[in-house]
Amino acid sequence: MTTTNLSLPETGSLRAGPFDLGYRIEGSGTPLLVVGSAVYYPRTFSDRLRQRIKLHFIDHCGFAPAHAAYTLDDIGFDVVLGDIERMRRHLGLDRFAILGHSGHGYMALEYAKRHPQNVSHVIMVGTGPSHSADHMALADSRWGEMATPERKAIFDHAMAAFGADIAARPEERFKSLLIRLGAKSWHLPAFDAAPLWRDVTVNNPVFDHLWREVFRDIDIRDGLHRLAMPVLLALGQCDYLVAPAETWDAYRRNFPDLTVRMFERSGHTPQLEESDLFDETLLAFLAR
């Protein structure tokens, strides 16, 4: 599950408030904007995809170096969505597909609601309907019922070390948590995700606010009537981080055009875990 770059990428940064948002452009073909980290996410997509897709990886403020102190007003959801639009203009993108993985799926979907004239397709990968208490409780129940004893033992061993991670590197708490949650995140429960996170900047207050508050309370049904473009939802069978796939059933009728694809040998990141099948699925979806 590794990738290498086919050619030298185009990289740069954009000043947005107190943050320097990085970007990285790789590949050729259909433009696809990937919201999240311009350092982490290029490591999760295949070289094959880069032969057909021009991938524009962009930071949001959760992954961007800060050149000044910031407050909650600088990291709100509206600010993040505004930064995506600012980056779109900076990169000269007129019409493109947008992809968000995990909580970034909400960013991709909400951006498309606000700027439907710019977006041809929306792809949400490893995203639950919300991070509400009810949805997270269902994720926990599924873990308790479906995870093997081996997977649970690996999880317990990893989480026992999380306290030491925080003590040693408190500024990387969010990153350390995601690495330690590997047994809930990957089809292979002992997979070490640490190399994927190497040199990735993480601003804990941004994730605390967005993941624990905004995405807890979000109702993705708001504004879905404005979507004319198709939406692809890619889920992993072994993803225990988000609500179970069946929780999406209550939302399907609100989407004008929704395709749901389950990846049987993936956890939270099917674009890396089943890259061949993911690429095939994505390319077919974008060709619609």
Score class of each variant (00 low, 15 high):
residue 206 V to R: 03
residue 158 A to L: 10
residue 193 A to L: 05
residue 259 T to R: 05
residue 136 M to K: 14
residue 149 P to W: 06
residue 82 G to N: 11
residue 125 V to N: 01
residue 218 I to R: 07
residue 261 R to M: 08
residue 187 H to R: 11
residue 232 L to C: 02
residue 159 M to L: 15
residue 22 G to S: 12
residue 174 F to S: 12
residue 112 A to H: 04
residue 263 F to A: 05
residue 31 P to D: 07
residue 76 G to W: 01
residue 132 S to Y: 01
residue 219 D to F: 04
residue 205 P to C: 02
residue 129 P to Q: 11
residue 126 G to P: 05
residue 50 R to Y: 03
residue 144 G to Q: 15
residue 136 M to N: 11
residue 121 H to G: 07
residue 190 A to E: 15
residue 35 V to Q: 03
residue 150 E to C: 01
residue 123 I to F: 13
residue 236 G to Q: 06
residue 242 V to H: 08
residue 14 L to M: 06
residue 78 D to R: 02
residue 227 L to V: 07
residue 225 H to E: 12
residue 225 H to D: 11
residue 240 Y to P: 06
residue 27 G to E: 00
residue 74 D to R: 00
residue 93 L to A: 08
residue 179 I to R: 01
residue 130 S to W: 15
residue 113 K to G: 00
residue 119 V to Y: 02
residue 119 V to D: 04
residue 202 V to H: 07
residue 249 D to V: 14
residue 223 G to L: 09
residue 166 I to T: 08
residue 250 A to R: 14
residue 103 G to W: 08
residue 102 S to R: 07
residue 99 L to W: 01
residue 162 F to M: 04
residue 117 Q to V: 15
residue 8 L to M: 12
residue 191 F to T: 09
residue 5 N to E: 15
residue 260 V to D: 08
residue 15 R to K: 15
residue 164 A to F: 10
residue 121 H to V: 10
residue 88 R to F: 05
residue 75 I to T: 03
residue 162 F to T: 04
residue 156 D to N: 00
residue 45 F to T: 12
residue 8 L to F: 13
residue 245 A to V: 03
residue 178 L to N: 05
residue 204 N to L: 03
residue 133 A to P: 04
residue 126 G to Y: 03
residue 226 R to S: 09
